[in-house]
Amino acid sequence: MKPTKLELLAGLFVAIGIAAIAWLTIQLGAGALVGGDTYVIEARFTNTSGLSKGGNVVVAGVPVGRVESIRVDPADFTAIVSLRVLSHLKLPTDTIASIKTTGLIGDKFIAIAPGADETNLKPGDRIVDTESSVDLESLIGKMAFGSVDKGAESEPQQAPASPP
């Protein structure tokens, strides 16, 4: 049976609509939908200000996961961040996690610098060696009052501020 004009036009719309939905889900929602198996590790930070749930986790600049959740450890008031990373990525136990910023006030993300240990982190393990986020305001404040050394220590690459 030959399709009518109405059938053709309605069919055309449905085709475009499906394509649009598919593009949106695959291209934009891909981060969580596609990408294969993941596992969760934890990292303890003294300060996570600016980091948000869903933030990127990168190794050598390549996104490999997301921030799953951020909560406070009631025992010592540090922040426990759960990171969901791709499972084919085996991270040594002496891996370092640091909170970094894109640009001056851009998004916060977690950069992972894998260590050299023989044993790897298992799901649920905690990264102990961490660098917390730089509190930009206090950094500027310290710079203004001439004692920037401590801030500079905790984030040497990002804020190579020389003492005045």
Binding site: L28, G29, A32, L33, D107
Partner: peptide
């Protein structure tokens, strides 16, 4: 920035 910002749950909310 577009690709990084939108997550699956945003799309869920949308639909």
């Amino acid at each position: 920035a577009v690709e990084k910002a939108v997550e699956a749950r945003d799309l869920t909310e949308c639909f």
